[in-house]
């Protein structure tokens, strides 16, 4: 398993049939401190990850085919999770830069595609349900 950050998508119409209707994500590989480790992978999305998110990448063919449930597919790399925290030495390596720094927050969170999942810019979805 590897840590990665989704930096984009790859669009393709002519491809191996196994990739039909699948989303390909371009992911930079990260070190445990959340810094780019050099290198990238194109991975098939299985969790609905969006640009800017830190993700868990599976890069092993048998496991990947088991997860997508297609035994003969030429697929080896999957995004299998969206990472909330990576605690290294007691600190969250993925925490945004201190607010004092000002403007450039949100760079880590996806702000180009997809809707925020962590409620950073919208109220929790649990409020408002069951009220009349």
């Amino acid at each position: 398993m590897k840590l990665g950050r989704v930096v984009g998508t790859v669009v393709s119409t002519i491809n191996s049939p196994a990739f039909d209707d699948r989303t390909l994500l371009l992911c930079d590989l990260l070190d445990p401190q959340g810094r780019p480790a050099g290198g990238y992978l194109i991975a098939v999305d299985t969790v609905g990850a969006g640009a800017g998110e830190t993700v868990l990448i599976l890069d092993e063919g048998n496991s990947a085919r088991q997860i997508i449930g297609v035994s003969g597919a030429p697929i080896r790399t999957l995004v299998v999770g969206i990472v909330d925290e990576v605690i290294v030495g007691g600190t969250n390596a993925l925490a945004p830069a201190p607010v004092v720094a000002g403007a450039s927050r949100g760079r880590r969170r996806r702000d180009l595609w997809g809707s925020p999942r962590d409620g950073s810019s919208e109220p929790s979805s649990t409020s408002g349900s069951g009220e009349s």
């Binding site: 669009v11 393709s12 491809n15 990739f19 030429p74």
Partner: peptide
């Protein structure tokens, strides 16, 4: 090799798609 019609062949790299566009942040 899984990408090919006969999956038990000595192949270790296969092209599986032509890229139309790469959209990045």
């Amino acid at each position: 090799a899984q990408a090919l019609p006969d999956t038990f062949v000595p192949v270790d790299h296969a092209i599986v798609g032509i890229v139309d566009a790469v959209a990045t942040l």
